[in-house]
């Protein structure tokens, strides 16, 4: 069944105002500004939420590392963990050092004889107490606090 409206053809003879009249420059500008503002807020909101999500999904902020080691087991060598080194300094004290080079964050590794700690990225060198022997690093390796747990095993306080 078809309906016809008397007086209207396909051409649309009714007095419909042209598009330009409906969308005056002022109105178009306002709509464009609102759209831009809304877009910026939307993108900013997305970026904020994405960062919050990324932060909370990052690696766990482990505060302590239970090494399971008796301190007397640490000899003259350097024990290498993914993010820290365990060794004895010149006075024979057990030392835990953050492996991240203070220059740009690459992981330092002990030299073959264990006397130096070297950064493989830009060649910084540190002595066994973490002090800078050669740049470009200018700050010593970060020392991490250590303690003993109830079984007398070494605990490294990674965050402290």
């Amino acid at each position: 069944m078809s309906f016809y409206v008397v007086g209207m053809s396909d051409e649309g003879t009714s007095k419909r105002p042209p598009q330009e009249e409906l969308a005056s420059p002022w109105r178009r500008e306002t709509v464009a500004r609102l759209a831009l503002g809304g877009g910026i807020i939307f993108v900013g909101g997305w970026a904020y939420m994405a960062l919050e999500l990324a932060r909370s999904a990052g690696p766990g902020s482990q505060a302590e590392l239970h090494t399971g080691l008796d301190p007397s087991a640490i000899g003259r060598g350097v024990l290498t963990f993914p993010r820290l080194l365990l060794l004895r300094d010149g006075r024979g004290d057990v030392l835990a050092l953050d492996r991240r080079c203070t220059h740009l964050g690459c992981l330092v590794s002990p030299s073959a004889d264990g006397r130096l700690l070297r950064c493989p990225c830009h060649g910084s060198e540190f002595d066994r107490s973490g002090g800078v022997r050669r740049g470009p690093a200018t700050r010593p390796l970060r020392r991490l606090r250590t303690s003993l747990d109830s079984r007398g095993e070494l605990v490294v306080h990674v965050k402290g």
């Binding site: 990324a54 690459c106 992981l107």
Partner: peptide
């Protein structure tokens, strides 16, 4: 891993949003 650490340090140089850009 080394390239990641260096690039992260590089992005953190960007004022204000550097750390966020690096993390993102």
């Amino acid at each position: 891993r080394a390239a990641q650490a260096i690039a992260a340090a590089g992005l953190k140089v960007v004022p204000m949003f550097g750390a966020d850009i690096s993390l993102g």
